[in-house]
Amino acid sequence: MRLRYQTAVVSFCLDLTDPRGYSIPVGVLLVGQSEGLGVAAATALRTDRLVTSGFLDPISSEIIGDLLALLQAHVNEAIQANDGNVDVSDVLLSLRSSLRNSLYVSSISPEQCEEVADPIGAQTFATGSVLRVLRSAIITSSNQLRERAASMEEDEAPYLLEPPPGYLPTASWPVPPFGAGLRDSHPC
């Protein structure tokens, strides 16, 4: 079966007032659909290390710590509220609309396709994908911060991120089939 899916990266902006301020990727959501199948998966960064270092305040830490639950609730509500008449992109764009302060959607991937054997295969694929996308986003962010750090004053030097093994709790879950009545126009 062919799974159509998209991913959204959720980032945390460290200073919303500062146009030069930077963000760190903190979570990824994947939403996918196939014939009679819906699947979602999410992962979010553990924040305890960032709190210990003084990088995050307690409220920001709690909110990022709840990101996995927030993403799960968003997907389920976005699909149920529309009786399933939504597309993958609708779910992710509504997430972007709902997160527009310190926590925000920094990117949404184009629609992609993957052949999976069955619903379990779809969930396995989704789980692996969110981990892969978040690790990649963290590496990209780290590299950008390192480039910027070189030109900064010492007291401005940002906390450099490193991809933290074991710091990416993940969940995947089946969702009711959705997108009923929508025409599949994707070329893949």
């Binding site: 919303l16 301020g21 920001s60 909110i63 926590l103």
Partner: peptide, 13 residues
């Protein structure tokens, strides 16, 4: 103007 460095919507608070 964005007033504060860290801002969260009421529904998260």
């Amino acid at each position: 103007l964005v007033l504060y460095g860290r801002q969260f919507p009421w529904h998260q608070i």
